[in-house]
Nucleic acid binder design. Structure first.
Lengths: 217, 217
DNA sequence: TCGCGATGTATCGCGCCGATACATCGTTAC
DNA sequence: GTAACGATGTATCGGCGCGATACATCGCGA
């Protein structure tokens, strides 16, 4: 899962570890916390031995003025290989049930620009189904076991239900959009500091179910 | 983190592994996926050697009619010990920065009924601060780097921003409520299938995304 | 010039997951 | 009647990824 993310970034341009981590943090910020070095470096080594990436040494242009006092440890720049690019495409197209999981879905989504439309649709729909199931789970708990749970647990369930419901609607918009032919998600110009530029314009109409909500707003 | 959850459940009543897992799934369903047995059983053993829990054997009342043909492996019922209860209280009150993380926050929240008001407030406020920072991060990316990211990455950022914003509002309501003295979260009539039954006249749906995963949340 | 924060590489222990194996029980299907 | 199946139940194993930690360089302001 990190493999896909790293390969994807290196596909854009060569980079060293630190930079890789920073870019991953912003690119996947909505999905997972910053990736740990304890994961990053071992993964880089694994990718390297597998032949997907190589070191593109960085002996700087500067004269050899600093003799390796303490075995000079410079930054290591990695670049993707031809096999790595193939591997990346393979991983991108590999749409198993794991690809619908929170983290994996996010990573796949982050590289949608480089993914075929049909794959994109398959992933979005799989994810939607998964979140729908989650949502039904919450509904059942709230309907059936409400009196057996304490107030805070119930609040957590409602919170989860609402979040799941919103994600389903979000996915539905994205799916409709993909089908309509326009490739990238639409959206008004940004830069707005307003908290929720969200859903406004076309949005709404797309709820599949009788729609639990919408009593609000 | 599992320690707290397991201790908390066993605090309510003795239970065997399978049941423990089921209850955890519903109680923490909004926070993290179902806990794996690969985590559960080792953790149980750890808690046992630490003395927080003990086996409350389950040799059923039935006569010894089934001689251990294949070393009869019955269900193992665990119960919390006195030390375990102390430990549970300690863990509950331990409010470090880790307690504001997605998963840990959820577990703490799930046991708020057994937590002091001031601790509850401290946790809710810490969590709010954390999510606010997250939110600011998204805003900055969207404001500063919008033109350097592809459409899908941007969409992910907006989604994240919106989710964070909603969670902050949710937390704010909970905090206000705690301060107002009413201990348990308020809420319209139960049994409702409606996802977001109103709170007050302000008529705003509470919500937020748990986040990654969490793994994921 | 001294410290400090950002940049940068790397390792170690361990919590937790997903897959897998194995065993029992009740219900449904033939 | 019995075979199949899904739910219940305990348990292990390989491996991914995290958090803490160590170490080193560089630029900047006090």
């Amino acid at each position: 899962m990190l493999d896909l993310a790293i390969l994807g970034l290196l596909h854009e341009s060569p980079m060293h570890g630190y930079e890789l981590r920073k870019q991953l943090s912003t690119k996947l910020g909505a999905i997972r916390a910053a990736i740990s070095y304890g994961s990053l470096y071992p993964t880089l080594r694994r990718l390297q031995t597998a032949g997907w990436i190589t070191e593109a040494g960085e002996t700087p242009a500067g004269d050899a003025d600093v003799p390796p006092l303490t075995s000079r440890r410079g930054r290591v720049v990695y670049k993707i290989t031809a096999e790595g690019k193939e591997r990346f495409q393979d991983l991108l197209a590999q749409v198993g049930p794991e690809a619908y999981e929170d983290a994996a879905f996010g990573v796949h989504f982050a590289f949608f620009s480089r993914t075929d439309v049909d794959i994109r649709l398959r992933i979005l729909e799989g994810r939607r189904r998964k979140v729908e199931e989650r949502r039904e789970g919450f509904r059942e708990v709230l309907a059936r076991a409400a009196e057996r749970l304490d107030a805070y647990t119930l609040e957590l369930q409602r919170h989860g239900l609402d979040a799941a419901d919103r994600e389903v609607r979000w996915l539905e918009e994205l799916i409709a959009n993909e089908r309509s032919g326009r490739t990238p998600p639409p959206r008004g110009a940004e830069g707005e500091l307003r908290p929720s530029p969200r859903t406004t314009d076309s949005a709404r109409p797309l709820t599949a179910r009788p729609g639990p909500d919408d009593s609000a707003e």
